[in-house]
Amino acid sequence: MLQTFGFIVILPILSIAVLLTLFRLIKGPTLPDRVVALDLMTTLGIGVIAAYAIVYHEPIFLDVALIVALVSFLGTIAFAYYVEKGTK
């Protein structure tokens, strides 16, 4: 029941959210706007992976969610470091 519900309702909602964020990633006037949009896209991607693990009954995908969270944190920190360094 949760699996069909997730396939019909939850995954489309999350896809729409990722597409809206992609619009901000393309439009964003400055570089930090784009970095924030990219960070939000990876956070939404963690949610998509968790919902996918529920829908297809594959609990091994939660490991992927953990690793994606780690890598996206490092990526955002690196972007912030170089954006701040570029102003000196």
Binding site: P32, V36, F79, A80, Y81, V83, E84, T87
Partner: peptide, 10 residues
């Protein structure tokens, strides 16, 4: 970190 960098970036 990102907000601080953006504030310095103007």
């Amino acid at each position: 970190r990102m907000g601080r960098a953006a504030y310095f970036n103007g």
